[in-house]
């Protein structure tokens, strides 16, 4: 029975140790999904979403829209969508109609922005509508408002494949993000790639490492945070755990890194609001 779970996890069978651990931690290594039919869609061209590295219990919370706490943010996003704000006294709805009209937008961000000649990500795009169209104040990063709206905009693209472009004018930014991913940092001197390319499927203490292909998952509800959080918050956490100085959420460094991480997720479905440990 755990052999089956193991095979479905599709983890590299590189070490006998892995097998032993899979036995110790009966919370499947990305195996037996709470929802058998939904499992297939989280693996595309050999790329696996963090969903497949979650325990069945965590998967079950994500799979059920009624228990998934991320939906509180989707609902809050819907309220904000229709709220008129700013000197222009406009709401998102006044320009865009129903939120579902934005289906297909989320999977393509970050993208090159001709105006600033650098990348713009979805949070920044939302804030640009606020400052330019609504003449309202930009929402703060990680504020309830910005998280809610980003989650709503992600949610309406649920199931669509992540599809960021990394050629053309986006190329130099993509290359910077990639360099970040391979750069060792912090007192513990590790790069993103050491955990998420070299050892996915293996345990680092109690944590099962995923491939970090989270392009379709954030903002997500993290049980550890007891809250929904942005991808940049996750970047800060991963930087801090190797005792490296993190960058600011929304910094150019993190937006470039985001493009690289999302490119690694190209083809995987948007699953906002996802749930992780």
């Amino acid at each position: 029975m755990f052999r089956k779970r193991y095979r479905m996890g599709g983890i590299a069978l590189s070490a006998l140790g892995t097998l032993v651990m899979a036995g110790v931690f009966t919370l499947g290594a990305g195996g037996a999904s709470a929802c058998e039919e939904c499992k297939g869609k989280y693996e595309v061209d050999g790329k696996k979403s963090g969903y497949l590295y979650s325990t069945p219990a965590t998967q079950a919370i994500q799979d059920d829209d009624f228990t998934n706490p991320g939906f509180l943010w989707v609902e809050r996003g819907r309220q904000l969508w229709a709220k008129k704000e700013g000197e222009a006294n406009k709401s998102c709805k006044d320009c865009h109609g129903e939120p579902e009209k934005l289906r297909g937008v989320f999977p393509t961000y970050p993208k090159f922005d001709p105006k600033t000649k650098k990348l713009i990500n979805i949070e920044q795009r939302i804030n640009r509508c606020r400052t330019e169209q609504m003449k309202a104040k930009a929402w703060k990063w990680e504020s309830d408002e910005l998280l809610s709206m980003t989650t709503l905009v992600g949610y309406v693209s649920r199931g669509m494949p992540v599809n960021v472009k990394v050629d053309g004018p986006a190329k130099p930014f993509f290359e910077k993000g990639k360099a970040f991913y391979f750069q060792r940092r912090g007192q513990l001197d590790m790069a993103c790639k050491h955990c998420h390319i070299d050892f996915p499927g293996q345990y680092i203490r109690a944590d099962l490492l995923s491939e970090g292909r989270a392009g379709g998952a954030f903002p997500l509800y993290r049980l550890k945070w007891q809250k929904l959080g942005s991808l940049h918050r996750r970047f800060r956490g991963c930087n801090k755990q190797v005792r490296a100085k993190p960058y600011k959420a929304g910094s150019d460094e993190y937006v470039n890194l985001e493009l690289y991480v999302k490119w690694r997720s190209n083809g995987l479905p948007v699953e906002v609001p996802a749930v992780r440990r």
């Binding site: 060792r184 940092r185 912090g186 050491h194 070299d198």
Partner: peptide, 24 residues
């Protein structure tokens, strides 16, 4: 290797302030 060097203070990048100049 992924394994940290436990007795180093040089050749590291963006170490958090409180750990700068200190080995693990």
């Amino acid at each position: 290797t992924i394994m940290p060097a436990f007795y180093r203070t040089e050749g590291l990048h963006r170490v958090m302030k409180k750990f700068q100049g200190k080995p693990v």
